[in-house]
Amino acid sequence: MNIFRFLGDLSHLIAIVILLLKIWKSRSCAGISGKSQALFAVVFTTRYLDLFTNFISFYNTGMKVVYIACSYAMVWMIYSKFKATYDGNHDTFRVEFLVAPTAILAFLVNHDFTPLEILWTFSIYLESVAILPQLFMVSKTGEAETITSHYLFALGVYRTLYLFNWIWRYQFEGFFDLIAIVAGLVQTILYCDFFYLYITKVLKGKKLSLPA
């Protein structure tokens, strides 16, 4: 485990906790895409099925369980507990346009044609685009609450740090996994536009709003 990966995991965890706390404290999930959160629950579930098949470390198992639990807590809050505050009218991204292509791609391009491996690959592909419903929602309403911006920023930083982790692993372990790297690159690129807005606006104390 290198520093980039650890900080990446930490950043991912911080992102999730920020969002959970935001919803819980404000008793509202306004501005949050339930579809993106549901997709993340699918991503974690399909990727971490290896919890049942092999043990890597207590850190690994612990983080996986926490991510899965948090993602389901999020879905429960949005679609059940605070359903009345969910902004479904603006959450109109068609998720089948993400799920179907990534599922097909996972069948075509994978390391090993076995159920667990295909599901793992699917989760990697799906994760890279799972934030799109949320970004679409922000662009549709033209703004995001500052705390939502922090969430998106921390989530974007997570995969960016993983890119550095993969460069590190290639350099010092001679190891690389093209599936993870390409998907991670796509995922990071999707955040670039948002990173720009975050740095130029949110960090200067302004609310994130898009020009009309």
Partner: peptide
Amino acid sequence: QEPNKTHDEL
């Protein structure tokens, strides 16, 4: 068969 190495990542 040994699992792919990135599978130790989150």
